[in-house]
Write a protein that binds this DNA or RNA. Structure first.
Lengths: 281, 281
DNA sequence: CCATCTTTGTGCACGCGTTCACAAAGACAT
DNA sequence: ATGTCTTTGTGAACGCGTGCACAAAGATGG
């Protein structure tokens, strides 16, 4: 670091690793709390604890932004709040549209956190004509016919999709065509977008399944009878490598999936994919 | 993402990397779709496209589960659906409680996706006495006084927190004390939990901020006037290194944050942290 | 002005995750 | 049976992210 006026390839754009960017909001939140309590400075140790991360990691993260700390003292809270806000682009106004005003969309619209950090709900959009004009969170719902006009008129670049999975891709395409370049997707579907468009997804179903996986493992360690036992002769558990001949071939037996290994699954179709805007994550 | 024990000392858990586990639900969803359309088999290429990932990655992921494919043909859809479901622990019933029935909690309760994959809403809990007994999504809300009893009586091991940030940690502690070992947190706070408890968080505010960061960068490349210019004499931009005498010291100037570098931020307190169950992510 | 103490900033090493590229396995046609 | 063609499963290289450990910077006290 020091005098290095030498190389700085990562200067502007390429600096800040993705992992660091993802933690900045966390630091910012912790710092805001300290700021409200009028705490002047914090050490990396304290702030790290508040943000739930390792202090070394925090220091390294900040080092990507520049050297904003004072050795022997720590970081100036107000100054850091400002620097991070600026880095995240929160010093400017970001108009946002929410498409799909169902249970979830309405909940999102009511979220006060939007306005807090530079985000402003420019419009609520829904395909249901009956919803048009009806106010949600104090904002009248607009019909999706006006989607393009709304995007253009307000210079919206961030869109939130809270529609049923079936409509998500279509809505996404329209948003992108209208100029949106960042999308937060709550619909349980994989969205396909052109280069230059960022998509982040929030999927409750996936989060629960991940928790279930770990939960099952925990239970398995205590009572090795519930989870471990695979229905039939399946590798993966007994031997280290599942490549053993006796196991693998047991599955794709011809075209009939009715073999012993794969029992008939619940007949009902997965409401997961079909689920409306009711669910986010 | 989860604030919980991120430490994965690779116990002897031999197998399935975290990153792979996180993708399994994605594959499962894609496979379920194929299953409904009665597609008998899929190649890694096709399935990868449907799940939005790289085919090599998908094959490697599956290799951790065992060799369930047939060279020259692909994977048997039904069989794979079963194997992944089993691996994720979805073949068993997971009673779940949702704490905090505000806008978000209600939206979550209405989410049909819960029931779809082995997850069952065992109870809805809220601290507001006025909510008690009132049905939400067909399930009567119970008062939080009964939280412990509900957990124990139903053998609940997964809890969803959709309360305001201020109540989250307290609710979390109670859930854990009552026996919950997996938590999905929608409140904008860092939860502290003992070892053995998994926490995953969903935070809209953070997602938006990450999008804003990238959005700002995109804009900056086109019009280098909007984002770059820091308000006043701040390092990091003008000069390559912020360590220059005239810059860095400008910040932590005494205790008064009113110096030129860090302009007075919006006076309003951050509703972000205080925000009720209205918001998830 | 010097000694000591605190805390930052970072060089370095390690491990995980991603991707490439290919040998081998099996299906299918002849 | 044998050859060809398709697709899997994986060895190996690479890059990113994490955490350790420490030198340097600066505060603080004598």
């Amino acid at each position: 670091m020091a005098t290095g006026r030498t190389h700085r390839p990562a200067t502007r754009s390429r600096g800040i690793p993705e992992a660091t960017v993802a933690r900045l909001p966390l630091y910012l939140r912790a710092l805001t709390g300290l700021s409200e309590r009028s705490v002047p400075t914090v050490s990396s140790e304290e702030l790290a604890a508040a943000a739930g991360v390792n202090s070394a990691k925090l220091r390294k993260d900040f080092s990507y932004l520049g050297s904003y700390g004072t050795r022997g003292v720590g970081y100036d809270v107000e100054y850091l709040v400002y620097q991070i806000s600026r880095e995240l682009g929160l010093t400017q106004d970001w108009p946002v549209v929410i498409v799909g005003i169902g249970n979830l969309g309405a909940a999102l619209a009511n979220y006060g956190g939007f306005a807090s950090r530079g985000f402003r709900v420019a419009a609520l959009i829904d395909a249901d004509p009956a919803m048009a004009g009806k106010p949600v969170a104090g904002i009248p719902v607009r019909h999706s016919d006006q989607l393009e006009d709304i995007i253009r008129d307000n210079g919206v670049s961030i869109g939130v999709i809270a529609t049923p999975a079936g409509a998500a891709q279509q809505v996404c395409d329209r948003l992108v065509a209208a100029g949106v370049t960042s999308i937060l997707n709550f619909a349980p579907t994989v969205l396909t977008v052109p280069d230059g468009v960022d998509v982040r997804k929030v999927d409750l179903s996936i989060e629960l399944q991940i928790l279930a996986f770990h939960e099952q493992r925990k239970a398995g360690e205590d009572a090795p009878d519930v989870p471990p036992p695979p229905p039939t002769t399946v590798a993966q558990d007994g031997a280290e490598h599942p490549g053993t001949p006796a196991t693998a071939p047991a599955a794709p037996e011809g075209g009939a999936p009715g073999d012993g290994a794969a029992p008939a699954r619940r007949g009902r179709k997965g409401p997961d994919d079909e689920l409306p805007a009711v669910m986010p994550a």
